[in-house]
Design a protein around this nucleic acid. Structure first.
Lengths: 336, 336
DNA sequence: CACATAATTGGCAGCGCTGCCAATTATTGC
DNA sequence: GCAATAATTGGCAGCGCTGCCAATTATGTG
């Protein structure tokens, strides 16, 4: 009556079907497919042939349950609209793909409550490791992560207490280096444009490092503009316009990222403000768009792809918790 | 002797532990946690309390195996370095997160063999749906996808045969519209700069649509520069420089994306080439960076975020295979 | 050629959860 | 107050695979 085979759910091909087709035990098929344990060459060929003919696709859900281990790596980033994070993902992919791991990606929109939620639901898949952004998390996120027994790498920032592995650089120091760069060139009336600190702790730390160096030289940021949660050319352009309207006496502006900075640079081009003689501009991140602008942007190149790659590699390798500090570098352009 | 509890693997808290702690059957706990089936308010509270105290995290691997259904959605994109794809992901996230689905993301590097590999390994996790880019796949990818019974949405391009759901717009028509825009403004000696067609079928289709409209007007692209697999300001800048060195007689250049176009625009700024009077520039995608350039770039705004969102929503809703064509729009800047 | 050793292979329990259905308890109608 | 109905709850099989170990077969040794 029933034209289906005697399978339960759908007509899915299982290990058992392959086993029956080849006439070997399920364990043998499993060993061949995972290339683990011993089996003869002939067996291997027969199994592969049957797998191909039947169109068998191993069910990793069952595999993971039986072996209590998945090949999933959870990656949590605040946004996809800042190229830094896609770069981080690319770096991680370079380390993970060759060893057969897959990435489950979640975006938090710079909200640590949201981060807690997504980490909790990722944890339900028992990932092999977590790559998260920054060191700022809710207490519950920390404890979930610690209790889970899953290895964690916190990326990008080394200024603070990590949970396990930390790979990045000092955001404070990056800000400090930028301040020194401007001071060395004689700028003294310096503005700052960046995202609202409430949602980007790394930008805040850079600003703190920046301000501290200025303070040591006896000066403080002359003007500050904080931008809502976007990182766009438009926002940078508008912010610089507002800032100059308030105070046209500035000699330099430090932007918290290159998107903003390029927007600022565009504003100067459009208004005929001479850069850097009338106003110097400095960015952060070393984006392509700034480096190849008509007037190359002075910025600070961050090793974000390497951070992703090294973070992923080290977290998979195991080893003791540690902090890995990677170098960044000032790119001298023509805007300072 | 053994200070561990009598658990097998690690000290993981399971449903059984919660069940024991609350003094209710496992099925009841499971029903409460999934908010499915019936249970009393009092039971609910007791269960939640115990879950909290024990730090129980449901194991979705086991859940998915038992119920044959995961909350994972596989997303396959060619690259992360072109903002189009992060935008697609953001759109998909908007549709998927609220309904509790998680995204497993793989990058193919514009290689359909690589795409086949990643889809095969994603299939092992029995995702609830697939979102893939474009209509060009290996035959094996197609058949795997069809046989899997998993719903598939192919995004961005509607010029061709889909597997199931297709959400995007006609790449050919986008190219054609751009050509008409340039012709209407009187440009006749037109160059084209874009990625090598071998790895970007959508760029090829746009170029075909573009060339066809030119052909109907009795002209053909005066110059063509194809760039390796990168989409950067630098590459666009260098390509325009090479093209103008070969042929300084052009009156317009159509760039296959805004990153290249902005590079071209930068080249013109740097060399003092008047835009558009001496050379017109047109881009594609409607990126922020072009829209807010000192001289706003004329480009074509693509609905990529909507494509991600609508594609994800529709593929999850079920329904018959269909093609959804979304509108794009010319953004008139000051470069044509 | 008998025996030790190595290489293959099979059987079975169980990973942690859900679906189904039966059992139990609470509520309602007359 | 008792049967009938609805609301809760529990038991158990089994999702598809892997780990362990025993069974079988092939290979080597003196």
């Amino acid at each position: 009556m029933n034209q289906d085979d005697d399978h339960k759910h759908r007509n899915e091909v299982t290990l058992r079907d392959v086993s029956a087709a080849v006439g070997l035990g399920m364990s043998t098929i499993s060993r061949v497919l995972r290339n683990h344990g011993s089996f003869s060459k002939a067996t291997r060929d027969r199994v592969m042939k049957a797998v191909d003919e039947l169109g068998y696709v191993p069910n990793r859900i069952a595999g993971a349950l039986a072996s209590s281990g998945s090949n999933l790596v959870g990656i949590v980033i605040p946004s996809l609209h800042n190229i830094v994070f896609p770069d981080l993902l690319s770096g991680a992919a370079v380390a993970l793909n060759p060893i057969g791991f897959q990435t489950v990606i979640a975006v938090t929109d710079y909200d640590i409550e949201q981060e807690q939620k997504v980490i909790q639901s990722m944890l339900a898949w028992r990932p092999a490791a977590f790559l998260v952004t920054g060191l700022e998390h809710t207490g519950r996120t920390r404890s979930m992560l610690k209790n889970s027994g899953v290895r964690v790498a916190e990326l990008l920032d080394t200024d603070g207490e990590g949970i396990d592995l930390v790979v990045g650089f000092s955001q404070r120091e990056a800000g400090a280096v930028s301040a020194r760069h401007l001071l060395e060139r004689g700028y003294r009336r310096i503005g700052y444009i960046g995202p609202q600190f409430s949602f980007d702790p790394r930008a805040r730390k850079r600003f703190e490092g920046f301000s501290q160096v200025l303070a040591e030289a006896g000066i403080e940021p002359a003007e500050t503009e904080l931008i809502g949660r976007t990182s766009s050319t438009e926002a940078g352009r508008a912010a610089l316009e507002r800032m100059l309207a308030r105070n046209s006496n500035l000699d330099a502006v430090y932007f918290s990222n290159d998107d903003f900075a390029v927007g600022g640079l565009f504003h100067c081009f459009a208004k005929g403000i001479a850069v850097p003689s009338r106003l110097a501009i400095m960015g952060y991140n070393g984006l392509d768009i700034g480096r190849f602008a008509p007037q190359p942007l002075t910025t600070l190149l961050t090793p974000r792809t390497e951070i992703g790659e090294i973070g992923a590699r080290m977290v998979m390798e195991g080893g003791d918790p540690q902090v890995v500090d990677l170098p960044f570098e000032i790119l001298e352009g023509a805007t300072t």
